[in-house]
Nucleic acid binder design. Structure first.
Length: 478
RNA sequence: CGGGGUGUGGCGCAGUUGGUAGCGCGCGACGUUUGGGACGUCGAUGCCGCAGGUUCGAAUCCUGUCACUCCGACCA
C-alpha cells in the first residue's frame, strides 16, 4: 500500500535518481534556490533537521571534552598561504573580499573555506606550556567554496558545518583524538541518522590538503553511490611548524604540538535523503525528524475530534516532537503531504476511533497500520518510532551489503564498475598510478578508503598485479 | 570546465505556416464534502529569462547573453 508511488510531482528514483533528489528537496520544502549561484536557502523544515543534528552532535562533542568557539569569517591571504599544501588545496576555490566600504583593501581576504589557519593563528597566541594542552575546540559556522556545479546539501557554495580543531602534547594523543572523533561520527550516523557506514583511512591521493592522515566515514546511498560523510584529520606537527606554534614541554625543551581537525556538514541532510528516501519522498530518522509524529484528525469538523487530537498531542509532546494538522486540506492530501516530508509516524484519530478509545498509527517505512488503544499511546508511539529507526538502519544495511562486491581480478573490477553500482572491495598495491588508472578506466570509480577492518582477498593488486598492501573499498561518489 | 536539456501567472506545462497568451494544479470568496491528494460556482494573477536584430507585426525567426537543471571532470 505505502509502496505505491502517490506523488506524481516526484520523479521515480529508478527513472532518474538525480532528478528524484532535486524533486524531493524542493517538494519537501527543505530548500529554495537563491539568486547567488550555489547558495541555497535552507527553509524552516530543512533547518529544523540541521538544528536537531547540531543539538545531538554538540552534546557528543561536549561529552568528549570539547568547547565551542567562534572564529572570524575572513582570512587574510598571507595567513592562508602559510601552509603550502593547504593553500594549494583551497585557494583555487576561495571567494575573496577585496573592497571594504569605499576602499580597496591592501591585502585581500578569503571568505573561509575552512578554518585551520585561523585556529593556528590563535593557538600560537594561547599555547606556551604543556599545561596549556590539550586544546579541544570546535566551531559551528558557515564556510564558502566556489564550487562549479552545485546541488542542494551535497555541494553548495556556502554550507554549514562544524569543524573541530584540537592541539595535543604528543602525536599519540592527537592520533587517538582523530580516531575517537571518527567514531563519534560513526556512532552518530548509526544511532541518530540510522545510516550504517564504512570507516577507514583515505589514501595519500585522497587525503586532506595539509594533513598527514585523513580518516573518513563513507555511507552508501540508495543507488550505490558513496558520500563522503565526514572526515577526521591527523596533522602531526605540520601546521604547528608552518605557523610556529610551540610549547615548553615537561622536560623543559621547546616542542611542537600535534594537531587534529574533523568536520561534518549539512551534507548529512543529503545523506539522510539519499539513504532513506523512497518514491513517496523523504523518510527522516526519528532522532532528527522535526516532526516525529503528525496527528491527522479525521472528520475534524465533527464534535470532539479536534479536542481529542489536541489532547493526544499534549500527552505526546511531553517527550516527542508532535504536530496536529488541523488545516482544511482533505485527509488524503495530508497523508501524502507528511509522507513526502518524511514524518516517521502518522497518528490518525477520528470519530470511530474515539468511540473505541483507540487510534491508528502508521509507519512511514512500512506503511503498516496499527490500531492501538489510547490508554498507552505514549508507549505505542515511542515503540513505533523505535521500530522505524531499526527498520531504516536494517534497510540501509541491507542496501550496503547487497551492493558491496568483491573483485579479485582486473577484468572483474571493470565489469562490476560498469554494471553494478555500489562498493567494490579489492586489493591494492599502494601506488597512486593504480588509483588513477582504475579511475580512468571506469570513468570515476575512486578509492573510498582503506577500511579499519580489511579482508584478505588475494596477494596481489587488482590493477597491476604487484604485491598488495591493502584492501581498499572503491566506489563512485556524490 | 566539457556534453545534453529547460527558461511562458506561485508550480507543472501547451502555444501550429509569425497576427498581440492559454490549460491543469495552486491561490481568494461562497456552498456542499471529509478514514488515501474531494466537488460546484464565481474571481485574481503575465514586460513569454535578459539584450540586440529581422518584420507592418515576434513567445514564435536570427545573434548574443544570463540563469537553472541532468551527466561527466574537481572538491565536504
Amino acid at each position: 500500500m505505502a509502496k505505491e508511488k502517490k506523488v506524481e510531482q516526484i520523479t521515480s528514483m529508478d527513472v532518474d535518481f538525480g532528478q528524484w533528489y532535486t524533486d524531493v528537496v524542493k517538494k519537501a520544502e527543505l530548500v529554495d534556490y537563491s539568486s547567488v549561484h550555489g547558495c541555497m536557502i535552507i527553509r524552516p523544515y530543512g533547518y529544523a533537521i540541521w538544528e536537531n543534528i547540531q543539538k545531538d552532535l554538540d552534546a557528543r562533542f561536549k561529552a568528549t571534552g570539547h568547547e565551542n568557539v567562534y572564529m572570524p569569517m575572513l582570512i587574510p591571504e598571507s595567513l592562508l598561504q602559510k601552509e603550502k599544501d593547504h593553500v594549494e588545496g583551497f585557494a583555487p576555490e576561495c571567494a575573496w573580499v577585496t573592497v571594504g566600504g569605499q576602499n580597496k583593501l591592501s591585502e585581500r581576504l578569503a571568505i573561509r573555506p575552512t578554518s585551520e589557519t585561523l585556529f593556528c593563528e590563535h593557538y600560537r597566541n594561547i599555547i606556551q606550556s604543556y599545561r596549556d594542552l590539550p586544546k579541544l575546540y570546535n566551531q559551528w559556522c558557515n564556510v564558502m567554496r566556489w564550487e562549479k556545479t552545485t546541488r542542494p546539501f551535497l555541494r553548495t557554495s556556502e554550507f554549514l558545518w562544524q569543524e573541530g580543531h584540537t592541539m595535543h602534547e604528543t602525536a599519540e594523543e592527537a592520533q587517538e583524538e582523530t580516531i575517537k572523533m571518527l567514531h563519534v561520527y560513526r556512532d552518530f550516523y548509526r544511532d541518530a541518522l540510522a545510516i550504517p557506514a564504512i570507516i577507514g583511512q583515505k589514501t595519500e591521493k585522497e587525503k586532506f590538503a595539509g594533513a598527514e592522515a585523513t580518516y573518513t566515514i563513507e555511507p552508501m546511498m540508495h543507488n550505490g553511490y558513496a558520500l563522503q560523510g565526514g572526515t577526521s584529520h591527523y596533522f602531526g606537527d605540520g601546521f604547528a611548524r608552518s605557523f610556529d606554534i610551540t610549547y615548553t614541554g615537561r622536560d623543559n625543551t621547546v616542542k611542537y604540538p600535534h594537531q587534529t581537525s574533523w568536520g561534518v556538514s549539512t551534507r548529512m541532510i543529503g545523506a539522510i535523503i539519499m539513504a532513506h528516501g523512497d518514491d513517496n519522498g523523504l523518510i527522516i530518522p526519528p532522532a532528527v525528524a522535526p516532526i516525529q509524529v503528525v496527528i491527522i484528525p479525521v472528520a475534524q469538523h465533527k464534535e470532539g475530534v479536534l479536542d481529542k487530537a489536541y489532547a493526544i498531542k499534549a500527552e505526546l509532546a511531553k517527550t516527542l516532537r508532535v504536530k496536529v494538522d488541523d488545516g482544511e486540506q482533505s485527509t488524503g492530501w495530508k497523508f501524502s503531504q507528511y509522507e513526502m516530508k518524511g514524518v516517521p509516524v502518522r497518528l490518525e484519530i477520528g470519530p470511530r476511533d474515539i468511540e473505541n478509545n483507540s487510534c491508528v498509527l502508521v509507519s512511514r517505512v512500512t506503511g503498516e497500520k496499527k490500531f492501538v488503544s489510547l490508554d498507552n499511546i505514549v508507549e505505542e508511539v515511542t515503540a513505533m518510532l523505535k521500530a522505524v529507526h531499526n527498520e531504516l538502519i536494517e534497510k540501509a544495511q541491507a542496501n550496503l551489503e547487497s551492493k558491496t562486491y568483491v573483485a579479485t581480478t582486473h577484468e572483474e573490477f571493470l565489469d562490476i564498475a560498469q554494471n553494478k553500482p555500489g562498493f567494490i572491495k579489492a586489493m591494492w598495491c599502494g601506488d597512486v598510478e593504480c588509483e588513477d588508472q582504475l579511475k580512468d578506466e571506469t570513468g570515476g570509480v575512486k578509492s573510498r578508503c582503506i577500511p579499519f577492518v580489511e579482508d584478505h582477498l588475494s596477494d596481489v593488486c587488482v590493477c597491476c598485479g604487484k604485491k598488495a598492501k591493502h584492501m581498499v573499498v572503491w566506489g563512485r561518489q556524490y
